[in-house]
Design a protein around this nucleic acid. Structure first.
Length: 871
RNA sequence: GGGCGUUUAGCUCAGUUGGUUAGAGCGCAGCCUUCACACGGCUGAGGUCGGAGGUUCGAGUCCUCUAGCGCCCACCA
């Protein structure tokens, strides 16, 4: 047999023989340790690209709780990795940890009682106190980052342990962390190249801003949430022309002081006469123009809108396209800023009055300000009628608790908008599983409305490797960044010094300052193929694994991770980063609700693994179809456990037929399989192999396990029962020899078919009678079964199993034991089926306890069972 | 507003290009414990496939319309 040829295993992996009482307990610990020491899953980096199957493993966020959803989707990937490995590929299956970003920051702040002040210098002697102090200690960015690393190391250990228990066939020598040196170097190198090729630019512009995290966020991190609000109808008196006041409707009256214009649709007859005239804001008496713009919707509200800087993204469009001035009143903390009414930019015909009104809201939060504003408007008579309550979508940062504001800030952007058509092409080129997931990518790319903002005003992340010269006036010149050279990466500009400067020149006139921001977490995660493949650090490795074969991930991060990875690969290499994307569904709680921390319905995997065993949990996961949301179902895990136990027992039973008096197991060759029933079984098994293989090739692991499992149960129920007597016969005789050879072939084949799903139990059984690891054995092929299967009548097993089933039914109906004898069994059927039956007559008689079989050729199939009742 | 998915036995789901009496597991009921498996085995009762119409010799499986559920996208003052 060639199955073991690829298994380079140490000498201690010889067959162990059949244990007396096989069980599942302890398999995870013992086999994961042996796989580790034997290097069973080591990537063969001498393999040429065409022999490699490379996987861009999703790096899980390690600062979060372990989640059953991880187990679910990683099991899918692992099954596919194991399939390709058994098919002879050198599988590149690395593991990454996403320890970058806000979740880690928050945890570190609370855990150690620190806060990051990027203005401070690095303190090499800093040690966090044992008990976190009430007032957070300010630490430098490098110190803060060090604490983040310290904590994430612990989380990563817990994850690695979970993955080993689950049996992931990862090569642990290829691990990375998104804040690790390799990832930082790749991120910074890529950034410098984007800067050099003009794919990134820096701009001060209105930016979506989270007032709690105090950072900009990108379009990809937005989500709409329905929130209660109200339309407030407000009258703006006309300024230079007589006529009735203009009434607008707004949900954000608190932004009145930031109003810079009113805008209506150019074709709106109601407002056309007002265009290019002026009105005055209530309370503040600021003169603002009435303008025309096509984005104004005549159907909405009163058909004329108040433009503020900035209430929403439409305001930004109007502000830009109508060249409006900026009146900023919302600070980065979400509170109203002080304003000097009557000075330039804050002109008012009644500045004292304006200031008196505004003084009552300055410093308040947006919400508080709105309450007071509405009172003031009502008192002044500008509020028309009562506010009309509505529910409307409001933009939130996906991790945030309060609505986003729009503030002007300096940010780095990747030019994604000009790439849109190319990105759509790449989306077409990528093979999606399931295919309909491509729609999500397409609608996202088509809906892009801004370049990708990659800078965040946070600390724990990859810093931008640039500095800015400080002029004689002490101001940094952001227009003239000083990029680092690639040979110095990774570096932190808040502590490292640009070439040609001295540390003393930091922040002084004529000196320099470092860029204070860090990269968006996706700016690093978008490089996972480059990071895992050691782009530029190890060109030989990179050339063997990139572009990768598979990106497995879940559907909610198509617009972030999948999209951004394609962007980076397109810019850097002009190609897709991988050829296939397998999108997994979500795990829902047992009541089919989405799991979330706030609902408290998150299921943790460890107790499930301990209770049911890894193979059982994997069985549940493997039955979740690609892309389909699947509920946690302990019932399915119990079924999986039963299956694993059945594999142990059926194997023990079959192998017992192959053992001699000393317990040594002889494995007869397939050429001995000559009996029609055995050949029939082989033919059906060949069909299962073909189906499972085709399913795996189409990334449909679930179909592969389903077909294998169905065959296995009928193999146990029918075939094993039918041959167990014959297999005990004299091995020198053709009948027993055929049965034994067929059992060996069937067992070997089925163990290999199950191996990607049930790695522990299949390896355990394999070790009883085979050399090497089942996971390094060759995936079964239909041609292996050709000898016995070709020309076989596949009806034999089918007809015999049917008749045996009828016999069982008769016994059950008569409330007899399955061991009860059958005096006469009469089978009426077509000549063809009777022939098939007769070819296995002795096995049928043995399995059914049948004394006499009478066959009748007829048109109406019937089975008549006369039980041999013994008193 | 645009788009995608889904709706099959009490529950969770399969049903691949349309083809004979619609499948599985769980749950339920009954039977069977020396001789692989009680962390078991066997057997059985349960659906006419969300609704309406259409194409076809024939539709759960294709087309049209429609309803519920879930999700994605969108410049909703």
């Amino acid at each position: 047999m060639t199955a073991d040829a690829t298994g380079a295993e140490p000498a201690d992996r010889r067959p162990t023989g059949i244990p007396d009482r096989p069980g599942l307990e302890g398999l995870e610990a013992s086999w994961s340790a042996r796989w580790q020491s034997a290097g069973t899953y080591a990537f063969d980096r001498s393999a040429p690209r065409e022999s490699v199957y490379s996987i861009d493993t999703p790096p899980p966020t390690v600062s979060g709780e372990l989640h059953i959803g991880h187990v679910f989707s990683y099991t899918h990937t692992d099954a596919m990795a194991r399939f390709h490995r058994m098919r002879g590929k050198a599988v590149f299956y690395p593991m990454g940890w996403d320890d970058n970003g806000l979740p880690t920051e928050r945890r570190v702040q609370n855990y150690f009682g620190v806060r990051c002040d990027p203005g401070l210098p690095f303190d090499p002697d800093f040690e966090p106190p044992d008990d976190p102090p009430k007032d957070p200690i300010a630490v430098s960015r490098p110190n803060f980052v060090e604490l983040c690393r310290q904590l994430t190391v612990e989380d990563e250990k817990a994850f690695e342990q979970l993955w080993r228990t689950l049996g992931l066939s990862v090569d642990w020598t290829h691990s990375y962390a998104t804040v690790g040196e390799v990832a930082q170097r790749a991120s910074q190198r890529s950034f410098l190249r984007l800067l050099g090729s003009d794919h990134v630019y820096q701009r001060t512009a209105p930016t979506l801003w989270d007032i709690d995290f105090r950072t900009a966020v990108s379009q990809a991190e937005l989500e709409d949430r329905d929130r209660p609000g109200a339309y407030h109808r407000i009258a703006f008196p006309r300024a230079d022309h007589p006529g009735p006041a203009v009434e607008i409707e707004t949900t954000r009256p608190e932004l009145l002081a930031a109003c810079v214009a009113l805008v209506a649709h150019p074709d709106d007859e109601r407002y056309r006469p007002l265009f290019d005239t002026f009105v005055r804001t209530p309370l503040y008496a600021a003169k603002v123009p009435v303008l025309a713009h096509e984005l104004a919707d005549p159907e909405k509200g009163s058909g004329i809108a108040m433009v503020c800087t900035f209430g929403d993204t439409t305001d930004v469009v109007w502000w830009r396209e109508l060249h409006l001035p900026t009146r900023t009143i919302i600070g980065r903390d979400g509170r109203l800023l002080p304003v000097a009414w009557g000075t330039e930019g804050w002109e008012s015909t009644a500045p004292a009055e304006a200031a008196a009104h505004y003084d009552q809201v300055v410093g308040k939060t947006v919400k508080q300000a709105q309450t007071r504003l509405v009172e003031q408007l009502a008192e002044s008579g500008a509020l028309i009628g009562e506010p009309t309550p509505i529910t409307h979508p409001v933009k939130f940062y996906e991790r945030g608790d309060r609505p986003l504001e729009i503030v002007s800030s300096r940010q780095w952007f990747v030019r994604t908008l000009p790439m849109r058509d190319k990105l759509l092409e790449r989306g077409e080129e990528l093979e999606w599983y399931p295919p309909y997931m491509a729609h999500r990518y397409r609608s996202w790319v088509e809906g892009l409305n801004s370049d990708w903002n990659i800078s965040r005003q946070r600390f724990f992340g990859v810093p931008f490797p640039v500095w800015y010269p400080v002029g004689a006036d002490g101001e940094a010149d952001f227009a003239a960044p000083i990029p680092a050279t690639e040979d110095r990466l990774p570096l932190d500009p808040s502590t490292d010094v640009p070439t040609g400067y001295t540390p003393e020149q930091r922040g002084v006139p004529g000196g320099f300052v470092g860029d204070p921001d860090v990269m968006d977490t996706w700016a690093t995660s978008s490089l996972t193929p480059q990071i895992a493949g050691r782009w530029e650090d190890d060109p030989d490795l990179f050339g063997r694994v990139f572009p990768m074969d598979l990106r497995p991930q879940s559907h909610e991060i198509i617009r972030t991770w999948l999209f951004s990875t394609i962007v980076r690969s397109e810019i850097e290499f002009g190609s897709l980063p991988w050829s296939h994307a397998a999108i997994s569904g979500w795990v829902l709680d047992p009541n089919r609700k989405k799991m979330s921390k706030s609902k408290g319905n998150v299921v943790t995997p460890l107790p499930l693994l301990e209770q049911h065993g890894a193979d059982a949990v994997r069985y549940w996961a493997a039955n979740g179809r690609p892309g389909t949301d699947t509920a946690v179902d302990e019932g399915q895990m119990k079924v999986g456990r039963r299956l694993a136990i059945k594999v142990l027992n059926a194997s023990r039973f079959a192998l017992g037929r192959l053992a001699d008096e000393t317990g040594a197991i002889a494995v007869p060759g397939p050429e001995a399989i000559t009996v029609p029933l055995d050949r029939s079984m082989a033919a059906r098994l060949a069909g299962v192999v073909s189906e499972a293989t085709a399913a795996f090739e189409g990334y449909d692991y679930a179909r592969a396990i389903e077909r294998t499992e169905t065959f296995f149960w009928s193999f146990c129920d029918d075939y094993l029962e039918l041959v167990k007597t014959r297999a005990y016969g004299d091995p020198a005789q053709p009948g027993p020899a055929s049965a034994r050879a067929a059992l060996a072939l069937a067992l070997s084949t089925q163990l290999r078919l199950f191996a990607p799903f049930l790695p522990f139990v299949t390896e355990e059984v394999w070790s009883w009678w085979r050399t090497g690891s089942v996971h390094r054995s060759a995936w079964p092929t239909a041609s292996e079964l050709d000898g016995p299967a070709s020309g076989a009548d596949s009806k034999v097993l089918e007809v015999v199993a049917e008749v045996l089933g009828t016999v069982r039914r008769a016994k059950t109906t008569a409330k007899q034991s399955m061991r009860a004898g059958v005096a006469v069994l009469t089978v009426t059927d077509t000549a063809e089926r009777i022939d098939a039956l007769l070819s296995a007559v002795d096995d049928l008689k043995d399995a059914g306890g049948v004394a006499e079989l009478i066959t009748v050729i007829g048109s109406e199939p019937a089975v008549d069972v006369v039980l041999d009742i013994q008193d």
